[in-house]
Design a protein around this nucleic acid. Structure first.
Lengths: 356, 356
DNA sequence: CTGAAAGCGCTTACAG
DNA sequence: CTGAAAGCGCTTACAG
């Protein structure tokens, strides 16, 4: 029966050249020892005919699909675009495709998503686990991107170190009473960031942590966080562990007539899309997603390639020693010295440092 | 040579049951006429053995991979999570996997991304084109998600209709002078939204469009938009055609000491993640991405399934009659009657309607 | 350096 | 209702 194949296959090239398919294969892959002239002829003919290799056939034969899975806790997460873009880029540079799977925040769906990818024969997967989840052996090489303090983590941003940088920045500006804002007490990433912030503050800075999940458990979703009241009690900086919370804080404070950064400073994490866009632009910490993705994909590919060889049919976490990728502080207008000029909100933003 | 296959194949089931592989195949697929008892036995044995079909083999044999490609103009786009999640969901419900490809804003890369997906043998693709791009015949069924007014569009939100709803909402509140805010003059989506807004205003509303790209071309990226000055000249509402611009407007106005919604109203489009989170929460228009994705995937699958049959080796845009999916107005606190109470900014948001 | 042959796991006419 | 056989397009020992 005729199959949906549009272009020519290896046999067509072989026939056109009067050589064997094996030679075409070897010439194209550069594996077998084929004479340079023949290699050239084969390449030329392949190009002329518009040959496109059948990845399905190759997969069937070699047992490798050349596809990596990307499992995300919740695609709707605003950090997702950065992650997906970086992984897709790293993978396609390495000649791999990326199949996505969304666990939609649910642990059961995470398991199901992993199973779906496995059925599709991915050679390995990158998993950004749902918080608290420990990824068991899934039956193929796995790179986990979470936080360096998470057991089984493969590669991650140095969230703690990022916190330290931000903590020092605020300390250097002269803040002495800082409100930390987190959303979720069980997030390793957030806890690391908070730990780093406190370490960066050093002695002499008083701080308190506000968990939004707890506020909302009492007052309902989207309720005010009471930040104006906090400012009234002497907090001069609000350090959120995510840009979304920082945005929430910034607008709540602005709406209460509290000038940022003249009266209080606000900081975030992750440099999400709106951070440079809001007024005042948000001081934040950026992850080097490109590097993280490169390391994750490289680790995966290393294991995948070994898999053919020697002893271990590696099919678990590729963590060995965790890679810890530095984060970068981005100072924008939302931070300044505390009460440097306790003016009424004006429409002239202070100059501030701007490092892009 | 032993291949990377972990589990049993059809032959294993066939052997265990003393039947042929063909029968196992027919029983499992439900295609051939196999006796009910045998079907049951085959299913049981498959489950017992933990049989997982080889999609690579099936693909090689049938010419279908069961994978759809998703091409995005720029994964970093904040709308992307919604799109990707919806497409992934629709596809996986239909038994398809989703391979992503990012054109990173570049037209050449868009072409390359499409080629990569094609090489991987996707059965079809969903393309969200870069603005202005017209997708040529790519060699497989394609569903284009852009805007109903775009030639070749397959399915899209009714951006114009959404604009109309928002226009009417502002008109009903009593606004008479509205500033429209767009980023890009060549975006079909944005032009449709603006057209709808104007239509929704009807007569008696004065409006003007501010294109951010033009402002920035002169004043540089991230510069103030001069909205406070606009408010001073009598504009009481600022209708952005994206939530990101709305956020920019909201914070710029707040920072200038202009109360939203007491003094001016601000609206966005798309109901992105931060819209319900900022203070005041943003009135916006939501796309029904789930429906759009379902329609796009369904259209693709319809063509893919026909492909085996009769005449046309369909390999182009699956557009025939464009589906136009209604958008939904979400009224939150950022809109109110103009100058209803020209108070100083207070820290008590007005109650406002809230429709979630 | 080159080729003949086998086989990856499945599906599909076709014959029985 | 069931099975034998062919073949999708490739790669890989192996022989020459």
């Amino acid at each position: 029966m005729a199959i949906n194949r549009t272009g020519p296959n290896m046999n067509a090239i072989a026939a056109a050249l009067g050589v064997s398919a094996a030679t075409v294969s070897n010439a194209l892959s550069g594996k077998g020892r084929v004479s340079p002239e023949l290699v050239e002829k084969v390449r030329a003919k392949a190009a002329e005919l518009g040959y496109v290799p059948s990845l399905a056939a190759r997969a069937l034969r070699t047992g490798r699909t050349g596809v990596l899975g990307l499992v995300l806790p919740d695609i709707a997460n605003p950090l997702f675009p950065q992650i997906a873009q970086a992984i897709e880029n790293a993978a396609s540079n390495a000649g791999y495709g990326v199949l996505i799977a969304d666990s939609r925040g649910d642990i059961a769906m995470q398991t199901e998503a992993i199973a779906r990818l496995l059925e599709r024969g991915v050679d390995g997967m990158v998993i950004v686990p749902r918080r608290g989840t420990r990824i068991a052996d899934v039956g193929c090489p796995v790179a986990v991107i979470d936080t360096p303090s998470t057991p089984g983590n493969t590669v991650a941003a140095d969230h703690w170190g990022g916190g330290v940088q931000m903590g020092r920045h605020l300390a250097a500006l002269g803040h002495r009473k800082v409100l930390l804002i987190g959303t979720n007490t069980s997030s390793n990433v957030q806890n690391d960031r908070i730990g780093g912030l406190k370490a960066g503050f050093g002695a002499g800075i008083e701080c308190e942590t506000l968990w939004i999940e707890k506020v909302e458990a009492v007052a309902g979703e989207g309720c005010p966080l009471g930040l104006a009241e906090k400012a009234a009690t002497g907090f001069t900086a609000f350090a959120a562990v995510s840009d979304l919370s920082a945005l929430r804080a910034l607008t709540e404070l602005q709406r209460a007539g509290i000038g940022v950064p003249e009266m209080v400073s606000v900081t975030g994490f992750d440099d999400l899309i709106w951070s440079p866009v809001v007024t005042p632009a948000l001081t934040t910490i950026r992850m080097d997603m490109a590097t993280i993705a490169d390391l994750a994909v490289a680790a995966l590919i290393r294991v995948i390639s070994q898999d053919g060889e020697a002893e271990p049919a590696a099919s678990g976490n590729v963590a060995s020693e965790t890679d810890r990728v530095p984060m970068q502080l981005i100072v924008r207008q939302s931070t300044g010295a505390p009460n440097s000029h306790a003016l009424q909100p004006s429409n002239k933003p202070t100059a501030g440092e701007l490092k892009s």
